[in-house]
Simulated scan of single mutants.
Amino acid sequence: MELINKLQPGSVRKVNESSLNSSQLEDIGNFIKAIQAYGLKSRDIFEANDLFENGNMTHVQTTLVALPGLAKIKGFHTTTDIVVKYIEKQTIRFDEDI
């Protein structure tokens, strides 16, 4: 939560401090909603169970790598750069003469 609130203050107003599963899932869901609102594309966002159940940690890592790339595009500057470029849209064109 601190990450998205640093990039866009007030994105997640409530953070549960309970260790109950329902509270943890709510926090993950709030984080996902906040990064969607920030502009991260749905294809780059993990699902709550990927993190909660350790289902697809590669997708979680992909999200956490894509987010700073988007932040950089939006003008967020830091002294640490992980050198990730966030691509808004990619178009593939085929030459019909081949």
Rank of each mutant, 00 (worst) to 15 (best):
T91Q: 14
R43N: 13
L40A: 01
A37M: 02
H77Q: 12
F46P: 04
D27T: 05
L3W: 03
N54M: 10
F52C: 00
H59S: 13
E88Y: 14
K41G: 04
F94H: 14
F94Y: 13
F94P: 02
P9F: 10
K14Y: 12
T63L: 04
S22A: 04
I98R: 10
K6T: 08
V15G: 04
I87V: 05
V60D: 01
K33H: 02
T91P: 06
D81A: 06
K74C: 01
R93C: 07
A71F: 14
K41H: 08
E53I: 11
P68V: 08
S22P: 01
L70K: 09
E26N: 14
R13V: 10
L70H: 00
F46E: 05
S23Q: 04
Q36N: 03
D95I: 03
F76Q: 01
T62C: 05
Q61C: 01
E17H: 15
I82N: 04
I32H: 03
V83N: 07
R43I: 09
L3V: 13
L70V: 08
K33L: 09
T80I: 11
A66K: 11
I73Q: 15
R13N: 00
I73S: 14
L51W: 08
Q90C: 05
V15S: 01
N49V: 14
Q8V: 14
V84W: 13
Q61P: 00
R93H: 15
G10C: 02
I4F: 12
I45K: 02
E47V: 11
V65A: 10
N30Q: 07
K6M: 06
S22F: 10
E47D: 09
T80M: 12
L51K: 01
K33W: 06
E53S: 10
D50F: 14
I35S: 07
T78W: 08
M57W: 15
I98M: 15
K85Q: 11
K41N: 03
A66G: 03
V15R: 13
Q90V: 07
N21M: 13
E2Y: 15
I28K: 14
I98T: 12
I35T: 03
N56K: 06
S11N: 05
P68S: 07
Y38K: 00
V60C: 06
T79P: 04
E26Y: 15
D27G: 11
K41S: 07
S22H: 05
F46Q: 02
T58K: 15
